[in-house]
Every structure is written in structure tokens, then in C-alpha cells.
Design a protein around this nucleic acid. Structure first.
Lengths: 163, 163
DNA sequence: GCAATAAGGTGGAAAAGTCAACGATCAGGT
DNA sequence: ACCTGATCGTTGACTTTTCCACCTTATTGC
């Protein structure tokens, strides 16, 4: 009998939104399996830790946007990270609405332990792609994200299912 | 001042998992904005309706897998669809664990109204991509989904952040 | 034929994510 | 300098998704 994944949206060639949703679920499940071995922080919290650890951002707005987390959820996750001692939150002189985020020793140590596994996972994902796929998928994601900003399709044309 | 999206995971060129998560959120928000104009069904329910309407699948397992929905969630969403009269659920003689799913007139009418907008949206997404991107992204999604099945990265090699 | 394993659906609980309102702050225009 | 509009983070409520245990049914191997 055929393997069960022959019935997935990806294998059936369903529209992109179905496939992206399925890919996202699979990637999330994979990440959760990895981080479950490293304590109780959830995926959103690890993303915040990673962004700060990488030095990509250290102010609340930039971290939140890079992490792609809802404002309300971000606020809660950051509070939990502060409460459990993984980060400290400091005033941001340039903008009183925002905060600076610093990893504590605990946060840095936790990241030092998990980071290599997530990095290996990232390498594994990239190795699954050809150089051409790696290049093209970046630009395709960007183009799709931009196209996702439009929400008015009431003047429908060519209303047939795409394969 | 630079537009806010210049700080998104996609624009910053963060690892693929960050970008896919962000793309997925954007696509979900877009879909929700569209279906909100068509009553109270949520995105998962509409996906079930579409799959049955398209004739892609009509048994519970195949619909669930094509929709990529958790078993528990699928059961609940399907029950709600039955309760509000969009589908009817019949016995499946080949496997007593499963059900057959049929759209009712109400379900088909609802789909006839929303379907064209979702199809137009799918066209819009595809038009945002070049022919090459359209071709490559399919195979890239498939390769990534397969790579997402691996969850053991404790023997980490090359543990550096990928751009 | 039987036992072990796997698959499927259901219901409940927990976790995660979205949404909206609010107050404080910032940016821009006059 | 002031006003308006926008942005930011917080909080609470709600929605959606995940997870788990259980029971039933199907499959597989001997």
C-alpha cells in the first residue's frame, strides 16, 4: 500500500497555500521535537532568544518583527523569558515605548546548548535543496509574502482551480 | 524612514524556518480576510469543503491528510460542518473507522460563492512568481517537507548560523 | 486463526496564536 | 509649539491548534 504521505497536499499538488501550510506544520513539528529536549521554552521563545543571541536585533520592535510574532503574544513570551531569567529587559533611551533585550548568562548558556542543534537542522534543510532551489526559493518566498498583502479578490477573474 | 517590512525575517534573510513561518502567517491572514466576508466558517473548515468540492477526496482519512489537519481538530471541524449543515457524513463500507463526506446543497452553494475568490487569490499568488519560481518552488517544498521528517540533530556538525 | 501492531476517529485538556482596546509615546505637518 | 495620526507594548478575551488517552477497526506476521 502506498505510503501515507502520498495523500498530503504537497504530494497531491494542491494550491500553494495548502502546501505552504503543510510545510509550515512539518517544520514546526520538527523544531518542537528538537527544543523539547532542551527544557520548557516554546518555539516562539526560542526564536526570540536566537535573534538576540545572533545580534540581529536587541530592541523589542525589531526582534518582534524579525520573529514574526503577534504584538500581544510577543509581549507575553518576552515577559516569561524575563521571569524565568533568560533575558533582562532594559529601557531604550531612543524610544520610551520600546525596550532593550539582553540575554542573561542563563539565556546565553541555554542558547549555546540548543543553537548547534538548530543550526544542524538548518544545514540539513539547506542540503535537501539544490543550489538553484536555494536561490529561487528565497525570491519566491519574498514575492509570495508581498502578494499575500492583497486581500480583495471580489472582482474575480479566471475563477478556476489551479493545480 | 524605511518601511517596517524591512525588518521581517524574509527581508533580513533569516533561516528558512523563520521565513516559512512568516510566509505562512501572511498567507493565513490573507485567507482569513477573504473568508471572513463569507460567514463564520474558519480556514480549516473551508479547506475541508474545498477538497470535497474539488472531488479530490471524499473519505475522512484522505481529506484530513490532504488538508494537513491534526486528527483531533479535523474531527471537530467536520462535526461542526455537519452540525451547521454544510456536509453530511455517511458510513464508509470499506473501513468502518472512516466516513464518507458529502457536500450538502448548502455546502455547495457556500463553496460556489467563496471558491472564485479563493481561486482568484491563488492566481494572484502564482502571478507573483516567474515561471521558473513556480516550477522550482514545488520541488523545493517537497524536498523541505521530506527533510522536516528528521528530528535528531544531536550529532551536530558545522554548527554555525546559516544566512 | 490469533496476537501484536498500527491506524482512525473522538473527546478533553493544554498550549499557542489572534484580535481588540487602551494608554503612552513618537513622527510629521502646520 | 501644537495637533493629528501612527506606532508600540500590555492586558484580557477568544480562537485555533496541538497533544494525549481511549476505544474500535484494520493490517501484518507467524
Amino acid at each position: 500500500m502506498a505510503k501515507t504521505e502520498s495523500d498530503s497536499a504537497i504530494d497531491l499538488g494542491l494550491p500553494l497555500a495548502f502546501q505552504i501550510a503543510q510545510l509550515h506544520s512539518a517544520l514546526n513539528a520538527q523544531a518542537k521535537a528538537i527544543i523539547a529536549r532542551h527544557g520548557t521554552l516554546n518555539l516562539a521563545q526560542w526564536r526570540i532568544l536566537r535573534l538576540v543571541a545572533w545580534g540581529i536585533a536587541d530592541t523589542t520592535t525589531r526582534v518582534r518583527k524579525a520573529a514574526g510574532i503577534d504584538k500581544g503574544q510577543f509581549s507575553k513570551m518576552l515577559s516569561l523569558l524575563e521571569k524565568d531569567g533568560h533575558v533582562e529587559i532594559l529601557p531604550y533611551p531612543d524610544d520610551k515605548r520600546q525596550h532593550l533585550i539582553r540575554l542573561t548568562e542563563k539565556g546565553r548558556a541555554a542558547h549555546d546548548r540548543l543553537g548547534p542543534e538548530l543550526d544542524a537542522r538548518q544545514q540539513h534543510l539547506l542540503k535537501a535543496l539544490t543550489p538553484q532551489q536555494r536561490e529561487i526559493i528565497q525570491s519566491a518566498i519574498r514575492a509570495l509574502a508581498r502578494a499575500a498583502e492583497c486581500t480583495d479578490f471580489t472582482q474575480a477573474q479566471d475563477p478556476e482551480k489551479d493545480a
